[in-house]
Structures are given as structure tokens and as C-alpha cells.
Write a protein that binds this DNA or RNA. Structure first.
Lengths: 170, 170
DNA sequence: AGTAGAAGGTCAAACAAGGTCAATAATGCA
DNA sequence: TGCATTATTGACCTTGTTTGACCTTCTACT
């Protein structure tokens, strides 16, 4: 359910998200600064709409960090956090520790893992199949708890396996 | 005003199913997006009727994937997936249908899949992590039931994906 | 230093979808 | 005809989006 490369924009939210990502990409890909009011103006919406987009599309779970400064010459800086170092993965694992996960949250993680090249598309498909609510078929909140443990276990297995492979190769 | 045609439909359900398939076909055949309320409106039925049609006529078993998004400008996307027809695997899938699986039984299946070259070692590791009794953390017999559905879903995902890859490569 | 104005932040309400479930109706079949 | 399956509906639920009123923090200027 994540934005495929669909050039047709569905709503304001997506439009703004898209715009920010384009700006981000054309600015070298690691970080941009925007003005909240200017952006709101450009899209003819209320400024708080920008906050909504940032909160729902550029959260840490999606691999972004958002910083800001108020007052004159204020700004909002959006940076991308690469997930390719071992450190970041360990962090992710630690963050998942004991956490319940909704299907959407798990999907976010899977997408990030694929984008970071940590897992392959087919592996992602396996994970998705495994954590799907219909597959689990257990009522909430137990379902999200199980899913949390599954994601943790599967990602850990991936890491272990990646390391074993590199040892074998090394 | 009644169509003198042969393709007279029995009921609403079939009518809607038909309509969606026509739209699908005229949209290039792989994917369409509909609005639940708009469709319900067009057929003068309750919105949940649309869900019923989707559930009974456009399930994965019939080769469709249905995704959706709520909220403003929400939508329902219906996509066609080419269904694979690999004899042995289909047999395995059919055999797993609705079956509870102990961890040992699942392990046997995973080993066979690796030996048969259907899945890679790393993929096997992911599956093992997912279906481990400690990961699931649910008492029997629910645990084995969940595991059964997981194996079924994961293997099916593998098959679907194998097929997609070969199309891309071909 | 004090302060005005320029940012950005928060939150809850209104609104806009789609989802679920169980009761009921209709249909098909032995 | 009576039972089992399949359709249909409506009441209620969950999720996602958009806006506006009000709050906080910062810079620049006097």
C-alpha cells in the first residue's frame, strides 16, 4: 500500500510528500530545509497540514529525521537516515524489542529493509505473507504482539545469516 | 429497458463482479482503482456489498490482490496476479490447506523446499525464525494452527514471486 | 533588555473514506 | 418442503485527512 511510482497524485498529503521527496532527491538526497508557511502557501493549505505530512510520512520509522527552528528565519530540516550500517540494524532490532507491531508498521519496516538492500524482494514477500493479519488469524492485541516477535526474529535471522555469509566469504 | 442480451446477470453480486472485470480489462488488465461508495451508489446498494463481492470474487485464490486506503480520497485497488501452476508445489500447498503444523513438521517442509531448490538457505532461515514456538509464544493448539497458515502463506508467496521474477527476467 | 513579529508546534473537531459483523432474505438443491 | 449455501443490508467501527484556533520559541530591532 505504499506509493508505487504512480505519477497520479491522490490527495494533498501525498502531493506534499511527493514534493518533499523530489526536492530531497534533487538536493543530493540526504537533507533539505523547507519553510513551513511557504510550503503551505504553495499547496494552498493550512500550515499544520505540513506537520501532519511530516508526522505521518517522515517519521523515524520510515528512516527520516526532522529538526526545526522557530522564530525569524525558522526552518524545518528533513534528513534521510541510511540503514545500511550494522549499527543502524542493531538499533532497529533494539527498537523492536518487545514491541507490538501493526501490519502497517511491519510493512514500513519491510519496505525500509528492501530499500536499504538488507533483504531481497522475495524475502520481503515471505515476510509479508507470514505477518499478514489473515495469516495469523488471531484477534488483537495478541496478533500485534506475535507480529512484533516475528519481525524481530526474522530480522535477527537475516542479520545472523548475513554475517555468517560474510564470514564464509571472508 | 431490460437488455435483450444473453449476458443477463442473475444478481447484484454478479453484476458488480462483471462491471469490475470490464473496467479491469479496459484499463490494461492488470490493475484498477475504485471508490467503494461511488460503486455502491452506481449499483444502488449498500457499500458493504462491494466488500462482499471483493471477498467472494476477487480473493487471492482467484488470482487477485485487493488493497485499500481509508480516509479522504480513499480507494480500493484490485490487481490481477498471474497464478502459477507448478504441479508439485500446488500439491504441497493443497496438502497444507487448513492444516495445523508442529514445529518439526514445518521444519521437514522447509528442509524439503531447500533441497528442492524452491527456496534459498537465507529464506529458510527467515521462515524458521518466524515459525519458531518461542517467536509465536502462543499455547497449543492455536500455535500449530497459526504455524500452518504461516507456512501456507509463505510458500504461496514464494511461488508467486518466483513466477513474477521469471516474467521480469524473460 | 524588552518587545514585536515571524516562524514553527499542538490539539481536537469535522469530515471522508473504507471495514466488520451479524441478522435477514433469497436461492438452489436433495 | 426443508436445509444449506449464497446475497444483501444496516448498524457500528477504525483509519486517514484537513482545517483552524491557540500556544511556544526564536530573531531582530529599538
Amino acid at each position: 500500500m505504499h506509493s508505487g511510482r504512480d505519477d497520479r497524485v491522490r490527495n494533498l498529503c501525498d502531493e506534499i510528500e511527493n514534493y518533499i521527496k523530489v526536492v530531497l532527491a534533487s538536493a543530493g538526497g540526504t537533507s533539505v530545509e523547507i519553510q513551513r508557511n511557504a510550503l503551505a502557501d504553495r499547496f494552498g493549505c493550512s500550515p499544520s497540514q505540513i506537520n501532519y505530512v511530516l508526522a505521518t510520512r517522515f517519521g523515524p520509522d520510515r528512516g527520516y529525521v526532522v529538526e526545526s527552528r522557530r522564530g525569524g528565519r525558522g526552518f524545518i530540516r528533513i534528513s534521510v537516515v541510511p540503514l545500511d550500517s550494522d549499527g543502524a540494524m542493531d538499533e532497529l532490532l533494539a527498537a523492536m524489542e518487545g514491541q507490538s507491531l501493526s501490519q502497517d508498521q511491519a510493512e514500513d519496516i519491510i519496505v525500509r529493509l528492501v530499500e536499504a538492500g538488507v533483504i531481497k524482494v522475495r524475502e520481503a514477500a515471505i515476510m509479508r505473507a507470514a505477518i499478514d493479519r489473515r495469516t495469523l488469524g488471531v484477534p488483537l492485541p495478541a496478533r500485534d504482539e506475535i507480529r512484533g516477535r516475528m519481525m524481530q526474529a526474522m530480522v535477527a535471522a537475516c542479520l545472523r545469516h548475513a554475517r555468517e555469509e560474510s564470514i564464509e566469504e571472508g
